[in-house]
Design a binder for these strands. Structure first.
Lengths: 148, 148
DNA sequence: AGCGTTCTTGCGACCAGTTGCAACTCTCGG
DNA sequence: CCGAGAGTTGCAACTGGTCGCAAGAACGCT
């Protein structure tokens, strides 16, 4: 086996070992796929990419790893307004929470950061006496190109 | 059969006949369940309530009716931060869009209306040159009682 | 009211995601 | 380096949601 362990751990794997969460071959593969993803992936796509590295990895392992990451707040789960089916999409959590804007016609996903979103969350915390841990704002409609 | 057709149509049914969408026994039952709901229902709960009126109604009919309502913008679909499982919840669309606040510990769902949310949406439309048709803001965390 | 078109339904098969369980494997201490 | 114990995996069975299709129902027209 040509040294797969010596790869750069990556943030997610580092988080795991710091917290004493076990790192297995299967989890390493899932983390790697998520960390190197360039676009929003759904569970099925992640599974397929993982199985290209290790074909024996089961669906349930991928789903369980995604749940684990979600519970630790390391990934965000998105619906993207159900543009394609009912499934969820995943992305690694960014420094700044952003809005997902989905064009219902061309399917393009845009991300948008604004301080108004932060202000809105602060207002919710204050007015509702609520401690926010996760939040998700998704918007569906038509982008400028599709609206013509 | 004691005059089931003579019931007050209700808003959803009225919308259907105005638009020439066929009204069937099954759809009538689903609309009735949604219109008389006092809390957020998931598809399974709606199915069970519908089947108490007409046991022959199939799952797929309920799901298709929900999709139909969603497409016409008559109901909103919510995840409620996946407090219980992966399923979705449905509520009939209100005059004013509101934020759903889900306590991750006690499961309580609070609804919150604020003009900041409207301002945020306006800003997205302006800054992103995007026409918003639907939006959804869900927040998860701890309510004041559970935070102690 | 009867008829025909068109839409809807129920069914069965399928895909996606979850769960219980026995076998396995990771990690830590010796 | 090895063994024990806890945690993880793959499997199989199950639930939730979707889809294609043939039978059935709704509505407009006469």
């Amino acid at each position: 086996m040509p040294l797969p362990e010596t790869q750069i751990p990556g943030r997610l794997q580092a988080y795991f070992s710091e917290r004493g969460i076990r790192i297995t071959q299967q989890r390493r593969a899932v983390l790697r796929v998520i960390e190197t993803a360039t676009k929003h992936l759904d569970a099925g796509q992640i599974l397929r990419k993982v199985q290209r590295v290790d074909a024996s990895v089961d669906r349930s392992t991928v789903y369980r790893t995604l749940q684990l990451l979600k519970r630790h707040g390391l990934i965000d789960e998105l619906d993207l307004m159900h543009i394609r089916g009912e499934g969820h999409y995943y992305e690694r959590k960014m420094n700044r929470e952003h809005i997902h804007i989905a064009c219902l016609r061309c399917g393009k996903i845009t991300e948008f950061v604004t301080s108004t979103y932060d202000k809105l969350k602060q207002q919710v915390e204050k007015d509702c006496h609520f401690k926010i841990l996760v939040s998700r704002l998704e918007v569906g409609g038509y982008c400028s190109a599709c609206r013509q």
